[in-house]
Amino acid sequence: MPQPKKQSIEAVPLRHPYRVAVALFLGLCLIAFVVDAAHRSAYDWQAFGKYLFDPRVLKSALVTLELTFAAMFFAIILGITFAVMRRSPNPIFQSVSWLFIWIFRGTPVYVQLVFWGLLSTIYHSVFIGIPDLHFHHFYLGVHIALSQNTSLFWIAVIGLSLNEAAYMAEIVRAGLLSVDSGQEEAAASLGMSWWTTMRYIVIPQAMRIIIPPTGNEIISMLKTTSLVTAVPLVTDLYARTRDISDETYNPIPLLLVACAWYLFFTTILMIGQYFLEKRYARGHRPMIASAS
């Protein structure tokens, strides 16, 4: 029998001519925009270059970073606390957590920041202790004066973190809910208390679900800090660049400066998030290496 001649079959992948055409068109649009923008005097690239590394701008960029991380630090701690309280068997904890989330997620962050800024005009001082009980001039309790001089930076951090805590609580709650209830039963059957179960069994497993959206929240917080002008805190990146442009009557290059810095920070955070997600999304592979 004659051997059939071996013939290789050439596999031609499906062509996508429209994709190529659209990509070319969009590329041309982008080039046209960039070339135009480079020559358009309103953008004033010279001023952009001048102010991009202006010490005032650099300092304000640092304030924005500090605000972001301080606010997220407290938001994560509070968020975990409220999420765990929401799941606790204690109805008082559940209600307090629900009320907090209801208020702080249900009102705009800008309005909340204005409120925190006005706190010292609503309450002149806070007294913790037993009221109307004093010997001569010694009160049983602590007086905290809320003066106008209270650090605006920390008022901004409080305002941002309380608002963000409500969102973090929901993220953490979703993470806790993702852990199978059999885990709690197994832990209970070993005699673990509710808190031990949370601390060593449920929360570590929930981290896989909690970490990626938390990265998102940090990026979101970075941009939300531009609202602290409502407090009014004016040392952050956006407020500072606007202040400068109020003097120079040239707002557009300074807006671009602010955008460049926000974009730079966001890019770094996105890279960090990419690696974190890769680490925590490894199928159902163990995420925490044991010490033993």
């Binding site: 199978d180 059999g182 885990q183 197994a186 069994i201 497993q205 159902h284 163990p286 925490i288 044991s290």
Partner: peptide
């Protein structure tokens, strides 16, 4: 369903 703790190895 065993309910082993997936984030811990067998010994842990």
């Amino acid at each position: 369903k065993f309910n082993l703790f997936p984030h811990l190895n067998a010994l842990d």
